[in-house]
Structures are given as structure tokens and as C-alpha cells.
Amino acid sequence: MLRFLIAVIRRDLRLAARRKGDWMTSQFFFVMVVSMFPLGIGPDPVMLSKVAGGVLWVAALLASLLSLSRLFADDHHDGSLEQMLLSPNPTVLLALGKALAHWLIYGIPLLLIAPVLGVQFSLPADAIGVLMLSLLIGTPVLSLLGSVGAALTLGLRGGGVLLTLLILPLYVPALIFGAGAVDATLSGLGAEANLSLLAAFMVMTLLVSPWVAAAALKVSIE
């Protein structure tokens, strides 16, 4: 069981390593979207530090959706998804493995870029720490819930945009708790409450979404 999960994750990591262009695109997208905000709302450091949490989080949602639209689509296209579904393993592990691999490939880098962007937005050090922590807890939610959307929209016309419509509303709690943690730190309230709610939400999506994604994959591939 565990061996299959690890095999799926290693497979996706290896494929991503062979195709660095795609990987870079997603990271640059995140950086560029975030950098547009000061140009749009002005360079006032006080205001920027106030909106930083929300802006970075929204950009993280969009960046993850950008890469999620291809989570299953590439494998569907060349037939390797069918082959994996036909391997003698539970489909739920395939869905979980793909989502976790997505998190490692696209979620973790966001978390590592975030401090640099936080400095640009004049965030104090403690808020940057909380921002990273909130992304660490929150980005798995994006990959897990997103895998459901990616499985549902597999092979459909305009799958990418559709995925956004389906999944963004479901991301709302992650956004609120994640950005809220940063805000709470700034206002001196402490981020514990937000972070623990975010962690609870993450655990729940971890328990539920692989099953739904597996069911959706079976429906879509039929």
C-alpha cells in the first residue's frame, strides 16, 4: 500500500524534474501576480503590510489552480492514467499520491518564495514566519481539494477555467484562516486560533478528498 503511494509520488517528482519549464512557470506566475498589487494599489508600506497576507494567499490559490488543471490531464492524454488505474492498487492511493506530489512540487516552493515577497510588502519578521507556517499548513488543502476538481474536469472543454469555478468557493476557509493568521499577528492577537482551525480543515480535507477524487477519476475515465 505505502509502496504504491511512494511510487506514485516518486514518479511525479521525477517527471517534474524532467520538465522544469512547467514548474518554473507556476512559480513565476505566483511572483508576478503578487508583484502586480503594489503597482495597482500604491507603494505605501503601511497599506502593503496590511494587505500582504490576503494578496499572497489569493495569489497562492490562483497559482495552485494553474498547475492543478494539468494534474491528471497529462497522464490522461498519453494513456498512463488508464494504466495506473488498472494497476492492482486502490485508486484512492493514486489520488492521494498525485495530490501529495502536487503539493511537494508546487506547494512547497510557494512557501519558500513567500518570505521574499513578504519583505517586499514590508511585513515584519514575525508575520513572515506566520505566513510561511500558514502556507505550510494550508497549501496541502489547495492540492487536495484541487485534485477533486482536476479529476471532475478531466478531459472537458475549457477544463482549466471550469476547475477555477468549481474549486475557488471551496478554498474559502483556507483563504480566511490562512490570511487571517497573518492579519492576527499584525494586530497582535496571535495566530494560534487561525492556524489551528486551518490545521483542522487540512486534516479534514486529507481524510475526505482522496476518496472523492478517486470516485471522480473513475467517473471521468469511464
Partner: peptide, 9 residues
């Protein structure tokens, strides 16, 4: 119809 092999490998 599809070969199920990855182009990168």
C-alpha cells in the same frame, strides 16, 4: 489506443 508511456522518460 494510447501507449501509456511518458515522453520524458
Amino acid at each position: 489506443h494510447l501507449n501509456g508511456i511518458k515522453d520524458e522518460l
